[in-house]
Design a protein around this nucleic acid. Structure first.
Lengths: 144, 144
DNA sequence: GTCCATAGTTAGGTAGCCTAACATATAGTT
DNA sequence: AACTATATGTTAGGCTACCTAACTATGGAC
């Protein structure tokens, strides 16, 4: 694929992405938890993470992550634990309430998306499914 | 495609989209114009729009659009004109400076995206290209 | 002409990000 | 062991972009 086509693809991809960004935000606005909050909860679902790791994964600075953690903590969704081997470290994990709030939020968001996906025909669904790994790779390339 | 698969696709699609949202923001952060500002300028590139139309297209409220227009106006990128047939209406159009700033911003963003696209192989590029119309349709479905 | 609807602005508030400055803990050096 | 440099978070203060509520001015219906 030559440069001209590549630039055209870039333009078209950016166009739909811009729209999608807005839509994701509006889907998320339905619930009580913001996009960023759900993203943070998802991150620590598998195992507790330090504040710095949350910041890095979310693409924000450490003080912003601290803020988020404080907020989520005051909502009772996360808890802060000490790291046994390093007293500087704060480990942030889900509470039971956090776990169920996350499950609910994810379910609602996925359901909305699934409903939208139903409007696509089989070929289009196939196209989206096939593109996902490529987009994931693209995301990685953009991240660096 | 049955419901279970659909929900799985929804989840995976939401995952990469969430990442992409963050990346779009970080790409945009490189320039002097914010994501929203460029989106607004793009909107009025073809023909001047009223403040209300800008708000609707951008998915924001009218007062927020007013703010944006004021900001862009003070940067000399847009100009406000009266509508001849309705004195309540404010038409917002690009100035020459706005047009060239927009071209520059788009070029820079597309170039960044094109560079990232170069890391994909032919099959992956094909997959992205094919998915774009489907995603556009999906966006429409989500918008309603 | 009165009344309601529409277009936009102004005022005031909030969420979520930022940088700079700080406190504390660890690790490395002598 | 003491001294210094590095790493982890928090606090303080500020900015942008959004919001709702209240307002002004124009337009349209009756």
């Amino acid at each position: 694929m030559d440069d001209i086509e590549l630039h055209d693809l870039a333009r078209r991809y950016r166009d739909i992405l811009r729209q999608a960004v807005y839509l994701v935000r509006s889907i998320d606005a339905d619930g009580e938890l913001s996009t960023g909050q759900v993203a943070t909860l998802n991150m620590i679902a598998a195992q507790p993470l330090r504040v710095g790791a949350i910041a890095r994964n979310a693409g924000i600075r450490v003080p912003s992550a601290t803020e988020q953690v404080i907020k989520l903590g005051s909502l009772g969704l996360v808890e802060r634990k000490a790291d046994e081997s390093d007293a500087r470290v704060v480990l942030v994990g889900l509470t039971d309430a956090g776990r169920s709030a996350l499950a609910e939020a994810n379910a609602r968001r996925n359901a909305t998306m699934a409903t939208a996906l139903k409007t696509l025909d089989a070929d289009e669904l196939q196209a989206v499914a096939k593109a996902i790994p490529a987009i994931a790779k693209l995301n990685e390339a953009l991240a660096s």
